[in-house]
Design a protein around this nucleic acid. Structure first.
Lengths: 210, 210
DNA sequence: CCCATCTTGCACCGATCGTTTCAAGATGAG
DNA sequence: CTCATCTTGAAACGATCGGTGCAAGATGGG
């Protein structure tokens, strides 16, 4: 039996995160979590606390796993705001294309289940979404977008991210998802004529940060 | 007590639909459904069958309620494909702004919970989404879009619809939602130079079919 | 070794899940 | 009226829910 832990805590948390990701908070029963992690109930509760706490740690783990990928994609010098959006959405497409993780996006699934979440979990989900929005806005400003344009494009890129997650959950093809992402990266922004000059079209959609 | 039904079947179904809409299938317990409809358990089961059947009837009721609104918004002669997208998304914004219905969209909430649904319910949800997509594509063709452009814009408008539902569930402001919708209606489509000539920009975003 | 400490499997808790049963009461046709 | 039919509230079903208690076994410091 035991004395010292018989499992890898980090790997167990990763698997628990996948269970919440696939099933959503409500349908992620303790039985499914024990089966998905390979842990017994005692080990689960002893290591991570109750279900709500485990969910919050899964959210945190999700952020630690994927926010750096977004950060990296957004950090590089980008020739245009559109390139920032394209790089951001490419990270999303790559994650969705990863066969080792569930469909969609843990944040999106959790957001649609807001009424089922406790206050702290809701706050965390919303804060993580807002943080992505802020990261996007800053990267867009760095790419030369105006203040208003950056705010709007950040919001729209975030929205497209959410739509990709929903369509993925509904079983839409990766071709359809790529089409949506490419179109979103083609939006010129409110400053209709200034940013549309050259940089936007020299780079085809997709093939960015892959 | 009884002998003949003590309630309005249509109104009860409408309220049950709202319970599924707000809570999602998993969290829409029988107790919440009885409380939301005002019916007793016996009346619920006797009138609508089990939970899964009631959910499917709620989906059907949702389609009967909102698809005509989309149909009407899409039917009128539109000056451009962008106008079609704008009209479509305006219906979505209006529904989200309606304080008498839950946040988001029953189809979107259900789509994110696909793993929790039985096969028939999944098929229904997917079919309803596909039908909206087809309606959009046809309206876009009627508005003068090319085949490829119509397919792409229909998909993107559908995606924007889903994103509005998610952001609404997450508590984003109606201003933010309107911004997303307006930007989506501004997408020129793949035929970069042909459709961009005059009709698209003569009409400001928003203020369509409201 | 001895023993406090930790981990684990298993059984079990009360609560809630979806569903069924049933008796009581209301109805309408004969 | 009589009586078959229907509706309703309430109780109860087995299953599963999230969570806990506990004894058995493993560990490492003294």
């Amino acid at each position: 039996m035991a004395g010292r832990k018989q499992f890898d805590v980090d790997e167990a948390l990763r698997r628990a995160m996948h269970v919440f990701w696939r099933w959503g908070y409500s349908e992620a029963s303790i039985d499914r979590l024990t089966e998905g992690t390979g842990l017994g109930r005692s080990s689960l509760y002893g290591t991570f606390g109750d279900k709500s706490t485990l969910f919050q740690k899964s959210l945190q783990r999700y952020a630690e796993t994927y926010h750096p990928l977004y950060d990296q994609a957004l950090s590089g010098p980008h020739p245009s705001p559109s390139a920032v959006v394209a790089a951001y959405l490419q990270v999303t497409l790559n994650r969705i294309a990863d066969p080792t993780v569930p469909d969609g996006c843990l944040l999106t699934v959790s957001a649609t289940q807001f009424p089922a979440l406790d206050a702290k979990s809701r706050t965390m989900v919303r804060a993580m979404i807002d943080r992505l929005r802020a990261m996007l806005e800053q990267a867009l400003l760095a790419a030369g977008a105006g203040e208003q344009e950056a705010a709007e494009l950040a919001l729209c890129a975030l929205a497209t991210n959410k739509s990709l997650a929903v369509l993925s959950r509904a079983g839409f093809s990766s071709d359809d998802l790529a089409t949506v992402a490419a179109a979103a990266a083609r939006v010129p922004g409110k400053t209709t004529l200034t940013a549309l000059s050259s940089a936007t079209d020299t780079q085809g959609p997709g093939k960015v940060a892959g």
